[in-house]
Nucleic acid binder design. Sequence first.
DNA 1: TCTGGAAGAGAGAGCGCTCTCGCTCCTATA
DNA 2: TATAGGAGCGAGAGCGCTCTCTCTTCCAGA
Lengths: 336, 336
Amino acid sequence: MRHRRPTIEDVAREAGVSRATASRAMNNLPGASTATRARVARAAGELGYRPDPAARALASGRRTAVDLLVVNYDPDLVAIGGHPYFGRVIAGMTTALDGTDVHLRVHVTPLDRAAATVDSVARETTVGAVLVNVTPDLAERFRRLCPQVVSLNTPAPPVPLVASENTAGAYTALAHLHRIGRRRIAAIHGPAVNACATSRRAGHLGLVADAGLPDLADRGEFTREGGYRAAARLLALHPDLDGLFVASDLMAAGAVQALTAAGRRIPDDVAVVGFDDSIAAICSNPPLSTMRLPVEEMAATATRALLDGDLAPGWLSGFPVGLVTRRSTDPAAALC
Amino acid sequence: MRHRRPTIEDVAREAGVSRATASRAMNNLPGASTATRARVARAAGELGYRPDPAARALASGRRTAVDLLVVNYDPDLVAIGGHPYFGRVIAGMTTALDGTDVHLRVHVTPLDRAAATVDSVARETTVGAVLVNVTPDLAERFRRLCPQVVSLNTPAPPVPLVASENTAGAYTALAHLHRIGRRRIAAIHGPAVNACATSRRAGHLGLVADAGLPDLADRGEFTREGGYRAAARLLALHPDLDGLFVASDLMAAGAVQALTAAGRRIPDDVAVVGFDDSIAAICSNPPLSTMRLPVEEMAATATRALLDGDLAPGWLSGFPVGLVTRRSTDPAAALC
DNA sequence: TCTGGAAGAGAGAGCGCTCTCGCTCCTATA
DNA sequence: TATAGGAGCGAGAGCGCTCTCTCTTCCAGA
């Protein structure tokens, strides 16, 4: 004999009322006396009743899930766990969802299966989805299946987009280095295929042009190791380096390790500015001055747009990034 | 005129078949000819049909969501985003779910509303839930509402538990410091209310007893700032410190900053071992030797246990933690 | 030519809820 | 005392699917 999970029918029977009344009582709807409510509550408690969310969603017509779809370029799904960006997106979405009865579903997929995941998530999503690291063609594919979608920081017109002002941010970071008197400033950029990396590089080139500085640059892969190696190469080529802009904090943390290993003092010999204001910035030693990327706010905005359902093709929301000054550019900055 | 979303009924009509056949065709079930399949697929594509997940779940009886419930002790929900642990849990759960059609739902709640969240998640979960940072009483409350639940690293008997061997890990870390010749070893522990912190402290006391070392210790709050301040205090009290065990990498990163600020060279003057092997360990400068907490594997194990549905009260799965040696204890360790 | 079986397709019964509609009874008002 | 109005409750119709059961073809084998 199977032990079937109790349904509202069972609760109603146990409480001696109809299904409708049991439903009213348990959902705090008007039309049930206090005594009835109490009896229903007791019956539900005794039976260990848990309403079936699927049946409830179907009957009420309320659909209650926002999806987060992350493409992981590393074939190992676990790799995403170490990424400082990812948790912040979830935190931001969570705050936007707080107080609603909408749930957050998280999907992580390796690149080689991204198309299939896009299809299934687009098919199953109810409120809509936020896309992280999804390539423009796949984002557009998603939008065609389900128009309720926002891409985070990866332009994929006409997919609705929430983006940070990367070019202006990079310009600000470099202007900061210039303002504190650095003139031999180099940059470590992200991979050329990445839209954020390209924008930040544009900001670098902007200041190089405006301030008449040499264009010293190398590339990392938005990883700590990439930052370390790029910094080591730059140091070998330009030993007189006195400022370093790094397009992500993770790379910057690596760069700082390389600079220290090469005997440079930070910020005395070389001042360093990162980008993101992630945990990598504060765990670095010294802590990094960086451009604060308001990831949480961006994710929350994207989520709210989905909840409001006012997303048209081409929708766009831009976020400024501001300078956070720490010890890596300011010897007087507090450490704690 | 409302624009109703197309149902399988519409697809069936458009394709000139019955609902049953349309369903068979779209779900790749036997009993539909190739020609019919093609017609149904075309009709679905033309209408932009997306099956209703709620209806599907209700009719099929397949329930497809695993929940992750995180209690955030900081009243600001956003704070969780910077926590290096959180993303790893999701990554681990994601890998366990990969290949199944079970979704991952994420719930983050501040402590003061945790009870309400526990109730609603327990009521709505289908496959079950993984609990992170949930206090023992709330975990037990969850289990009574829904027995399909695993607590991650927070013992709350008889709630099923996946835990790391924190005491043994801390002992190993301290033994490592002792083996490389350090004798003035201090420890920075986590908050006394935290079960992990208590276990790690026990490991410390174990080695203190076995090796006949002084019990030098202070506490942080599992935060960078806490680690910084505790290290500064220890240094003031015991300037001859030559080894430091820190119960989390985040605190250890702060401790390293404090040691550097006080003019100590790492590892030459003071060797440091952290705990977790989180991103904080590799972003620190120098990178931290640490005890690797297999968070991803633990989360995956918890998730698989839920999927298998073989959770009885008292179920337990333990994970060893292993030493990862980096520059903070080994001057010869590679930096990249 | 007849028969058996497989393949393709439709009818219809749910899945466990919510929600509208209408009935009954009780109380306040004329 | 007659009646309107409201509160409490039950009947029953879905919500959009899946899945079983049944019927109809159609073809291979005797």
